[in-house]
């Protein structure tokens, strides 16, 4: 290189970038990248907080008719969607005679879950996640949260669902 004799600026010289400069990352630059990632994570946390504050997930309002009692055998399930919403739910008639209604999306990666009759468990087939059918709590596998649930109200022969009041 002719840096000693040629006072031309760096950008005017031929091939001003060395191969090692183009490929290697110095530890100083690495530290700066770490700080950049740190800023991105802080921004992500801010986005989560803002979204939770400004656009909370919509609650189910009022009672909604799902089906008749006789439509679901013991140990059976019935898939339904509440009017005005696209969230899929399943209604489960447990072997004990209790009714449960859960969102059908696994809390891990939103795969469709299904009830395994006779086991008392709801299974997510994608990654072998299991939920307790009575409570919706995850009991095995990767799901981090319980399944969102609705309260089931039986009125005569009709089955209604509504949001839990305490939440």
């Amino acid at each position: 290189m002719a840096d000693e004799t040629n006072p031309a600026p760096h950008w005017q010289t031929d091939f001003p970038i060395e191969r090692t400069e183009a490929t290697a990352v110095s530890r100083r630059d690495f530290a700066r990248y770490l700080c950049l990632v740190s800023g991105g994570l802080a921004a992500g946390s801010g986005f989560v907080a803002l979204k939770a504050q400004l656009a909370p997930p919509a609650e189910v309002v009022g009672e909604h008719l799902v089906c008749k009692v006789n439509d679901v055998p013991t140990g059976g399930t019935h898939a339904f969607v509440i009017a005005g919403s696209t969230i899929p739910y399943i209604l489960i008639r447990l072997e004990s005679g209790e009714w449960r209604a859960y969102e059908q999306k696994c809390t891990h990666l939103s795969c469709a879950v299904y009830y395994k009759p006779g086991t008392g468990q709801i299974e997510c087939p994608c990654h072998n996640g299991f939920f307790d059918a009575r409570t919706g709590e995850p009991i095995a596998g990767p799901p981090p949260r319980p399944l969102p649930s609705l309260e089931v109200v039986v009125k005569g022969e009709d089955i209604y669902v509504k949001a839990f009041r305490h939440e």
Binding site: S38, A49, P144
Partner: peptide, 22 residues
Amino acid sequence: NNALGKHTRIAWPAFIGSLILF
């Protein structure tokens, strides 16, 4: 995880903590 589980109260303290760390 908590915000998706409808426990949103932790979101702001977590953001403030993350901002301080940044």
